Amino acid sequence: MSVYITNYEVECNAGDLTSLMKALYNKESKITIDTNYINGNEPVGLGKMKDGNFFEILINKVSNVLKDSNLNDFKDTLLIVGSSVGGMRESETIYFRDGNYKNIDPSKHAISVISETLDQKFSFADTRAISTACTSSANALLLAKRLIEVDAYKNILVVGADALCHTTVCGFHALGVLSDSPCRPFDKSRNGMNVAEAIAVLLLSSEKSDESIEFLGAGASSDAHHITHPDPEGKGAIAAMSAALKDAGIEPSEVDYINAHGTGTTANDSVEALAISQMFNNCYVSSSKAITGHTLGAAGALEAAIACETIHQGIIPPQTGLIEQENSSLNIPTAPIDSKPCYVLSNSFAFGGNNTSLLFGRAK
Rank of each mutant, 00 (worst) to 15 (best):
D16L: 09
S206G: 13
S209E: 13
D223N: 04
N103E: 10
H226C: 12
I332S: 02
S83P: 03
D187M: 03
Y153V: 05
V10E: 04
I291C: 01
I5L: 09
A248K: 00
E197T: 10
E92Y: 10
D210L: 14
P317W: 02
S288V: 04
S329D: 09
E116I: 01
E149Y: 05
S2F: 03
D98C: 10
S221W: 00
E90V: 00
E303A: 12
V158A: 14
S84M: 05
E324V: 09
A301S: 15
F96L: 14
L79P: 06
S242F: 00
S212P: 01
H225P: 01
P336D: 07
A140R: 02
A244V: 02
T18M: 07
L141S: 11
D223E: 14
P43H: 03
D16C: 12
G361H: 03
T168C: 14
S181E: 05
P230C: 10
K108N: 03
F186M: 02
E149F: 03
G15T: 11
P232K: 10
L118R: 09
V113P: 01
Y257P: 06
A307D: 12
T265S: 08
A299R: 12
D247E: 09
A363G: 04
K48R: 11
A144F: 02
L58M: 12
A267M: 14
G192I: 07
T334G: 05
C342Y: 06
G40T: 11
V177R: 08
T35R: 11
F124V: 12
N41D: 11
D180A: 08
Q319G: 02
A298I: 14
P317V: 00
A304V: 07
L17Y: 06
L141R: 05
I59W: 04
S242I: 01
I276Q: 04
S112A: 15
S63F: 06
D231Q: 08
A243H: 09
E214L: 08
L58A: 13
D73M: 09
S29L: 09
I250F: 03
G300L: 06
P252C: 07
L147H: 13
I227Q: 14
C342P: 01
R362Y: 04
I250M: 09
L142E: 06
E90L: 08
D180G: 06
E214W: 00
G45H: 10
T35M: 08
S253L: 07
D51Y: 10
K208I: 02
L202Y: 08
K48S: 13
K235D: 09
N64Q: 08
I238Q: 14
I59A: 14
K188N: 02
V201H: 07
G15C: 05
N331D: 04
G249M: 13
D210R: 03
Y4A: 01
A260D: 11
G234N: 08
V81F: 09
L274P: 01
L24A: 01
I130T: 12
G160C: 08
N281H: 15
N259V: 15
H229T: 14
L118P: 05
T32W: 00
D162I: 14
P182Q: 12
M21L: 10
P336S: 06
N41Y: 10
I111L: 03
A240Y: 01
T292H: 00
I94L: 14
S287G: 09
Y101R: 00
L24F: 04
I258V: 12
G52H: 07
T127C: 10
